[in-house]
């Protein structure tokens, strides 16, 4: 494990922890941006350049900016998020996470790169190499992702559209009905 690996690991874990624990929604969003950027650096280090740029442009750029806009439009930017209804869960979750980490660390102990990717020509992870793969062997997956995004759009639209309204009744009509009822008594 090199110093770079260690540094990136610490950065990734710290920013992820900050994203879920910070009380201020905007701070949490910014921590998530930091997390995305660290991840992009890891991609670059793995010579996945296209993926790294996509990570920055799409996630850290477009998605997170939209996210921050929504947060700032919806709440007071200082709004507290994450009211903790089950505070006793926290130490339990931490203990379980630690156990999970140790188990995985044990699984990885003494294992080198199990399956070296040296024989795969990725051309520095640039679109030229990726395009052939995406529209060759992985075409089915690309098509399915298109279907997934379409289904997700339909789902999102169905979630946000307003309630199916009953026929709108004018206030004057309501008032008249009320008066008629009173007369009836």
């Amino acid at each position: 494990m090199s110093a770079f690996d260690l540094l990136m690991g610490v950065l990734l874990i710290a920013s992820a922890l900050a994203a879920v624990t910070l009380k201020n929604a905007v701070h949490a969003g910014l921590a998530l941006v930091a997390n995305f950027l660290s991840l992009a650096v890891v991609y670059f280090a793995l010579e996945a350049q296209f993926l790294g740029w996509i990570q920055i442009i799409v996630y850290a750029g477009a998605v997170m900016v939209l996210f921050l806009f929504v947060i700032m439009l919806l709440f007071d930017a200082k709004a507290d998020v994450g009211l903790d209804r089950l505070p006793w869960m926290r130490p339990l979750a931490a203990a379980l996470a630690a156990a999970f980490f140790l188990a995985l660390a044990y699984a990885f102990s003494g294992v080198g790169p199990v399956n070296p990717l040296a024989d795969v020509k990725l051309g520095g992870g640039l679109p030229k190499a990726l395009g052939g793969l995406l529209y060759g062997n992985w075409l089915y997956t690309v098509l399915l992702v298109a279907a997934l995004l379409f289904a997700a759009t339909v789902a999102a639209v169905s979630l946000v559209q307003p309630q199916i309204r009953k026929a709108r009744v004018k206030p004057q009509v309501l008032e008249r009905d009320r008066e008629l009822e009173e007369v009836g008594k």
């Binding site: 997934l148 289904a151 339909v154 789902a155 999102a156 169905s158 979630l159």
Partner: peptide, 10 residues
């Protein structure tokens, strides 16, 4: 799995 799940969440 996601094509199955996301419609269900909605």
């Amino acid at each position: 799995l996601e094509i199955l799940s996301i419609p269900l969440y909605a």
